Computed example of a mutant assay.
Amino acid sequence: MKKILITGASGAIGSAAARSLAHSGASLFLHYYEAEAAAQKLAVALSKKYMKQEFRCVQADLSETDGTDTLLKQLNAPIDGVVYASGNSDINLFQDVKEETIQKTIQLQMTSPFRLLQQLVQPMIHEKTGKIVLVSSIWGLEGAATEVLYSMVKGGQNAFVKALAKEVAPSGITVNAVAPGAVDTPMMNKFSQEDIELVKEEIPMGRLAAPEEVGALINFLMSPSASYINGQVISINGAWHC
């Protein structure tokens, strides 16, 4: 039975990925930072539905330098796959972004996935198998005004995926990213309803993505059916940018 770590599992996309992967038969380590209640609720629900699988919550602040070590100490079994869905977004003019925000964002979305996967990829290389998916963003491909920092780290994740995939592909490991456009998650709450309606008008499909649609794509990339898809950043944005 595959054991998969999902970081940010208490979030909308992370929890949607968890439900999809659990349905496919995986046992899961469900990482959260502050939303313990949401993570525990998800674990209980999955445990009741998939009684032969294991669902364990693990806590760590991956925006801090010791976050990866804290997380790694809680993993009591080798990991067969990783979904890195932790993320944050700060909307601000470039010149107004605070130093603390810069440091925490880079740590959470660049340094922590790098250091975490340095450790978790070693047994995958030994076993000649493993799957890694990062949740990036459309802005890592296109860039966005007032989200320059977020665009930068997501663009870095995309380059990381492509480079790491080339290095570990000979060991049978796949590394990919999904790059969602506008998704109906609590992150959208920072926008007014009027702004959200304007975004919908820009999207050819006329709506936001559901977290479950992103979760299904992640599940596919983690499945044997995607065994030859490697080093790709796959957009899921309703033809908004293509």
Rank of each mutant, 00 (worst) to 15 (best):
I4Y: 12
L5Q: 13
L5G: 11
A9N: 10
A12T: 09
I13W: 03
I13N: 04
A17L: 02
A17K: 02
A17P: 00
A17E: 02
G25L: 07
S27D: 05
L30C: 05
Y32L: 15
E34R: 15
E36M: 05
A37Q: 14
Q40L: 07
K41D: 14
V44P: 00
F55N: 10
V58Y: 11
Q59A: 13
Y84I: 14
A85C: 15
D90L: 01
Q95H: 06
E99W: 03
E100F: 00
K104D: 05
T105P: 02
M110Y: 07
F114E: 01
M124K: 09
I125E: 12
I125D: 01
H126N: 12
K131D: 10
I132K: 04
V133W: 02
V133A: 06
S137W: 13
I138Y: 10
V148A: 10
V153Y: 02
V153G: 04
G156M: 12
N158A: 02
N158T: 01
A159L: 02
V168Q: 05
S171Q: 11
S171F: 11
V175H: 09
V178P: 07
A179M: 12
P186Q: 13
M187F: 08
M188E: 05
E194Q: 12
L198A: 15
R207E: 09
L208S: 10
L208F: 15
L217I: 10
I218R: 07
F220T: 08
M222K: 11
P224T: 01
A226W: 04
A226G: 06
N230L: 02
G238S: 12
A239R: 06
